[in-house]
Amino acid sequence: MNHNIFGFHPGTSIIHRLTGTTKLVIFLALTIFGSLSFDLRYLILLSVVALVALYVAKIKWADVRTIVWLVTIFAVINLMLIYVFAPQYGVQLFGSKTVLFGSGHYALTFEQLYYEFIVFVKYLFAVPLALVFLLTTNPSEFAAGLNRIGISYRVAYAVALALRYIPDIQVSYQTISKVQQARGHDLSKKASLWKRLKGALGIMVPLMFASLNQIDAVSQAMDLRRFGKQKRRTWYYAQSFARIDWLALGFAVALIALEMYLLWQNGGRFWYPF
């Protein structure tokens, strides 16, 4: 069972040595700016940067295989949905129509293919970035990092608590679900919808009471150790910025500046050279 839902793998690569704050800022900045861009050149550049980071962080294919497949399936389903609902969306976006195949409403056009390819790259480019972030960041540094970028320490600590309790809740969940099966609830795919709803309720009720009790106990324990006393709190895992952090941030700023330039030059989010 994977107790470490973040999937953190300790290591010594240059990316491991960046502070949690740096990685968080770069991850958020690049994914958000990447989602805004429809410039194929830029998206491919970002993907290459992310893949290089993945390589530098020495992450193995086995660690990321499942997630890559999941995202690919998710992407393909979405691409098909787009085609089903708006087969001529690319034509509408780019203002030209080059039919490659078939005719009528569902005619396959070059513009549609080009648009869907961009979307595909958009779905995928963030995956290596997220993997680098998740696999090289100690969850404790993550919370400290959130606080450092200006999020209230209470909210940052709520995130830390979520990460702390996910493995516990997962064990409770699995125990409850096995106990319910033993008592005769059918949770398998064969059961009727109604039976499965009742089964779900059989899991939710004990989980609800256990979690609400947990909330009481944990908040008392935190009060007894003075959580929330000061305007600020310090973090055991706070890290100070080193030169590589500034270099990495500088690199990210350069990438964002490039996007701004491209937006201005393309006169919009799309780049369509044809």
């Binding site: 000061q230 709190r233 973090w235 055991y236």
Partner: peptide, 11 residues
């Protein structure tokens, strides 16, 4: 370290 973090003790 939790109590010390809440008191704002330096690292």
């Amino acid at each position: 370290a939790f109590a010390l973090e809440n008191d704002g003790v330096a690292t």
